[in-house]
């Protein structure tokens, strides 16, 4: 096979087009490619370049974009302690997603992946938080954490202790956010794992049984290796998702106390859009875009096979 491919004569572009025309592919290409290409360029590529361009300007959102400031926005960003904190918070979210959320989801998936009615009920319960809108989750949890009228306040009152205001505490507020993020998304990862586990062939598990493998051995030597592709995919979603957390933070802490709980996106919103520093916000957006791209490509290189195979 390899020699055949290797010996295939290279065609000139014109000859290639002629061959596509003969095979009837050219019409399909001319018909179906432009709409997608135009839309993608218009709504993805162009805004990216536009934002990159905007990040070199100081612009309040009003009037002409003519105040070119070079790399000033990026310099401010590099020196802003709140941005450092938001970067660090995003790292903490990634770590929590990878080392708390995914193991939790995996454990639960292993427990309830078999098709029984009780398992279906559990699956529904565990998946429910994912269906809720992020902003609703934030509002619900802000009520739970509320030490005056909320659930935590009532628990404290029942125990006869002083209420604890976790969202007002600089040290613990972000821990509360991590809890909500894990609670919100573990069901999603669990579903990916359940789908993968159900695709593990029964004969392999039977063979392991016949060989006398224990339950743990079956998990580690049969099931996990066979669903590794799903774990890698899940980890990828977890990392990219953690970089983009926003809607949960705004109702919970709005970035406070003392700007200690911003993620990169809530930082962008607060310092870029809400304060009318659109150029500065664009610079944050560019940094976030680069972070996502670097993560995506390095993850692909490290965790996935050639051609993107999982």
């Amino acid at each position: 096979m390899t020699t055949m491919i290797g010996s295939r004569p290279t065609l000139s572009p014109a000859a290639r087009i002629a061959r596509m025309h003969r095979q009837g592919k050219l019409t399909a290409l001319l018909l179906f490619l432009p709409p997608a290409l135009v839309l993608f360029t218009l709504f993805v590529i162009w805004p990216i370049f536009n934002a990159a361009n905007l990040s070199f300007f100081k612009w309040s959102g009003y009037g002409a974009i003519d105040n070119f400031v070079g790399t000033q926005n990026y310099q401010r960003l590099a020196n802003h302690s709140v941005f450092h904190q938001s970067l660090w918070n995003s790292v903490k979210l990634i770590l929590a997603s990878l080392f708390i959320q995914i193991p939790l989801a995996l454990t639960l998936a292993l427990l309830i992946y078999k098709k029984t009615s009780a398992n279906t009920a559990f699956r529904l319960i565990f998946f429910a938080p994912y269906i809720l809108a992020e902003i609703a989750s934030g509002v619900i949890w802000s009520f739970i954490f509320d030490g005056d009228f909320g659930v935590s306040g009532q628990i404290a009152a029942a125990l006869g202790i002083d209420p604890f205001y976790i969202l007002a505490d600089r040290q613990f507020a972000f821990l509360a956010i991590i809890t909500v993020v894990v609670w919100k998304y573990f069901g999603y990862h669990m579903m990916i794992f359940i789908a993968a586990l159900q695709a593990v062939p029964d004969d392999l598990l039977e063979a392991a049984d016949i060989d006398g493998a224990s339950r743990l051995q079956k998990v580690f030597y049969v099931k996990l290796p066979l669903i590794m592709h799903a774990i890698k995919l899940s980890a990828f979603f977890a990392i990219v998702g953690a970089l983009q957390v926003f809607d949960i933070i705004i109702p919970l802490t709005n970035g406070g106390p003392s700007n200690s709980t911003h993620s990169i996106v809530s930082y962008l919103y607060t310092y870029g859009l809400a304060q009318l520093n659109v150029g500065y916000g664009a610079a944050v957006g560019v940094v976030l875009f680069i972070l996502c791209m670097v993560t995506a490509f390095s993850y692909k290189r490290l965790a996935m096979g050639k051609g993107g195979a999982l």
């Binding site: 509320d146 030490g147 205001y165 976790i166 969202l167 802490t253 106390p257």
Partner: peptide, 11 residues
Amino acid sequence: QPGYMDTTQPK
């Protein structure tokens, strides 16, 4: 009051 940094103005 306790928890004032988690208290919005309307609350």
